[in-house]
Amino acid sequence: MLVVACIKQVPDTTQVKIDPDTGTLIREGVPFILNPFDVHALEESLRLKDKYGLRATVISMGPPNTEVTLRKALARGADQTVLLSDRAFGGADTLATSMVLASAIRRLSQAEEVALVICGQQTIDGDTAQVGPGIATRLGYAQLTLVDCIEYVDLPARKVKVRRKLRGRHEVIEAPLPALITVTREINRLRYPTVPMRLMAEEAAITLWDNQKMGLDEATIGLKGSATQVRRIFSPERARGEILGDGANEPEKAAQLLLGKLIEKDLLYL
């Protein structure tokens, strides 16, 4: 049985700036990283592999250089990877993305039963948190979002019990398999790849599925299949507040300034 982790390679948004004139992202020279939430989805799938003997499969939709990220997944212990890459998939919003990912998972399940699909709770570039639930909807799987602990998977009984992290409380629920889980960063600590595994991953074959193989209706994928159209990208205006002092270089002065402000506004209760 399979556990499928869906991962995405994203621009390192902490290094992305927006061109004030054109309102577009300056992508030049910005390195790509594995979405920090997806790292934990990958790790959780590997833990389920270790614990329940599931075969860990990693899929990612993206440009051909996504291969680099998939190799990192192999180095950490994934059994197989599938790269979903085709010009027709490009420009996709969350709807069109979940369409491709869902049909890839359906294809995988034709060869081997899928027990669980695991996604990161959201990506740091779009921050919508919609792709995971979108996949679940399209596949008709139970969806368990914001999970910070998988308590158990009962394969014979086709059940999974998880804990969801909600604002100020936890929710523990049981769901039937197959299910889709989106995970928070607290769910696990990452493992580190050994050198022999890294070297193996560097040489490993990455399965590529393009649309010729997938055969999806081009009207439902990529830019054409997207329900969202970007009209403008801009930095939000700072509505209120001010930056006090130079905390990075003169932390003591900045702290003093802040303290003064707080006292002045009578916001300190001693």
Binding site: R191, Y192, P193, T194, V195, P196
Partner: peptide, 8 residues
């Protein structure tokens, strides 16, 4: 430990 076991 680091390279063969990933233990640190």
């Amino acid at each position: 430990l680091v390279e063969m076991q990933a233990r640190f």
